[in-house]
């Protein structure tokens, strides 16, 4: 129960936002991937966050929560782009290829949101570090 707990919480926020940024980067990088079947086609990925419950607090019925972590990464279920392109080397016998269902505009927004979330947590760490240093100097008063 001290200022270092704040650092742990904000640190978990940093790593969760990093996973989110990673999935976004992967989505953007793979947005142009084309596959010869629906099953092989690239589907956009999304990180789902979950609150970490503080176990000792749960035992004391205090309902306290801790930081955040990535619960799972889910696939985007929206339909894929089906394109008729008989000359494509990966086309199936009917001449179809499947492109990814990644929406680049959405990914850019997701990236901005993740980076803002990251910055917020960095500010929290900075502030609590300053307060910690000041508290250490209390004896000099």
């Amino acid at each position: 129960m001290a200022l270092d707990r704040i650092m742990d919480i904000a640190g978990s926020g940093l790593s969760a936002q990093l996973v989110r940024m990673n999935t976004t980067a992967s989505n953007i990088a793979n947005s142009g991937v084309v596959a010869g079947s629906e099953a092989e086609a690239f589907r956009g990925k999304r990180a789902v966050f979950q609150t970490i419950l503080d176990q000792t607090a749960v035992r004391n019925a205090m309902q306290a929560v801790g930081g955040v972590r990535v619960d799972r990464v889910v696939d985007d279920v929206r339909p894929l782009q089906e394109m008729y392109s008989p000359g494509h080397p990966q086309a199936n016998e009917l001449g179809y290829v499947w492109g990814s269902n990644v929406n680049e505009v959405e990914e850019m927004i997701e990236m901005l949101d993740a980076s803002r979330g990251y910055q917020n947590n960095v500010e929290v760490i900075k502030t609590s570090k300053d307060l910690m240093m000041r508290t250490l100097e209390i004896a000099k008063a």
Binding site: M1, F49, G67, V68, G117, V124
Partner: peptide, 13 residues
Amino acid sequence: LELLSQNIANAAT
């Protein structure tokens, strides 16, 4: 401060 930092960390949960 701890509670508020939890809120900020969980802004996207």
